[in-house]
Amino acid sequence: MLDETDPRVTAAAEICASHAYDPAELIEILHELQDREGYIAEETLPAIAQLLNISRAEVHGVVSFYHDFRREPAGKVVVKICRAESCQSMGASKLIARICERYNTDLGTTSRAGVTIEQVFCLGLCAQSPAAMLNGRFIGHATEEGLDTAIVEALS
């Protein structure tokens, strides 16, 4: 039985229905759920498994395999900074260290002010390295000051 009092579960059910309960659409379903709720709540997994007629282990396996899916809510601002080779050649490592220091947080965690800083491997902006993405917006030639300004703006 689905817990229909949990809005995250009802959201998951709606999304599964819009994909005709097709298990091949699982990744797209999870994307849409995360787009809506901000993360994939543990409580939604049994519901998705039941609706798509697959095992909970399978749903769990997919959620844990892909880097995109988060199990906990992220901060108000999500900054993804590219760590792949091209961006490294233009100082990405230093940029990441500085930004993390500035917001007193580590890669992959959320600061007290609500800034989540994450690594990503290539955004396809390698001729404008270092590259970053802030709440879905792409930034080329990222600098500490530029990112900081954008973060402060997004926080307010």
Partner: peptide, 21 residues
């Protein structure tokens, strides 16, 4: 749409992913 896994560029891994696995 993929979900952030480099290995899904490998063809058989991509097929798994298209199948929702």
């Amino acid at each position: 749409r993929g979900a952030g896994a480099y290995i899904c560029g490998e063809e058989s891994s991509m097929l798994q992913s298209i199948e929702g696995k």
